[in-house]
Design a protein around this nucleic acid. Structure first.
Lengths: 186, 186
DNA sequence: ACCTGAACACCGTTCAAGT
DNA sequence: ACCTGAACACCGTTCAAGT
């Protein structure tokens, strides 16, 4: 049995996918969940809190995927490319998740932290195998995630020329970075 | 003498910086520009068109900076770090500029294209000097810009741990990438 | 060609009231 | 503890009218 709270979050996520944050009106959310237009206020402080709950749900799902990743550089690459695919498939959730509010919302902050930790562990394991350059894994993780994040955002904004000789989609850029990082055989 | 159109854009940019797109109400824009709340409709189709004009102005300014860049890898790095500093200083303009609309707005699309071309030329020059790895300059440019963009966005979302042993700010990540890309002396 | 004031539909939020 | 209907203030947009 789905709680009203869960139905509200699901309805908000669907409206978000369809038309961005502006399309998430409390009236439509209520209608889709079968309650009145201000029933959401019994579960969330305001509209922003409802959107934050959508973001937290998304981040928790991402974290669950990341936990089962392997220890090779190829596994880390696949993890980041999976992240890029998710961003391209659900642009609005991607943009929402990396908005403003992690300072304010504890649930969101810890969900994001968990995902970052999973990536850092995988990077450290690949470094131990000599498949990624040495150095602080936290810092190398940040570099990898920043590239995946930026490549996805550029692709969504239409900034990646998908044709021509220099054509590269967001996943190609992730692959390029891993190729540059591969320690040369000495 | 500043035209009404220019005053509207300037007022919108200031309101945007102060409180994000939601704070850019046509009523406040009109008030700040000394006209009525619907005078903007004589200059822009709607609120989105006004925001697009703000983004275009910003992008044109960025492009003007990029045109005077040198030909060394250090110059390219400085260019990208300047981009990161701009993003961190004007988060709302940064987010606005890389929104949705480049497909729709010709002025915006060409402004963004000009900035990308300036970067590609500088990258090609640094490659010719042997300071960056060979390969299609378009593709390497995309990698560099994606990282700078992603690092800035992660920093703005509070995703970059600014303290601890793995501490790295957005500019550090750009520097790290250039260090990895430096062709090893063979 | 540019601007204004009134008006409309829509939205987030609050409140008194119901079970 | 959870929900509802009415109400309020605010916003984007349109329109008839003015210079």
């Amino acid at each position: 049995m789905e709680s009203t709270r869960e139905r509200l979050i699901a309805a908000a996520a669907e409206l978000l996918d369809r038309g961005g944050p502006a399309a998430v009106t409390l009236r439509d959310v209520g209608r889709a969940a079968g309650v009145s237009h201000n029933a959401p206020y019994r579960h969330f402080a305001d509209k922003d809190a409802l959107l934050a709950a959508v973001a937290a749900r998304e981040l928790a799902r991402q974290g669950a995927n990341l936990d089962q990743v392997g220890a090779s550089a190829a596994d880390v690459q696949a993890m980041l490319q999976g992240y890029v695919r998710w961003a391209l498939r659900y642009p609005e959730r991607f943009r929402l998740t990396f908005g403003r509010w992690e300072r304010e919302n504890a649930e969101l902050g810890s969900a994001a932290g968990g995902a970052r930790n999973a990536l850092r562990r995988a990077v450290a394991a690949a470094q131990a195998r000599g498949e990624l350059p040495p150095g602080d894994p936290e810092r190398l993780s940040a570099l990898l995630l920043a590239l995946a994040h930026g490549a996805a955002d550029q692709a969504l904004a239409g900034h990646l020329s998908a044709t021509g000789k220099g054509a590269a989609d967001a996943e190609d850029l992730v692959a390029d970075l891993f190729a540059y990082l591969r320690p040369s055989v000495r």
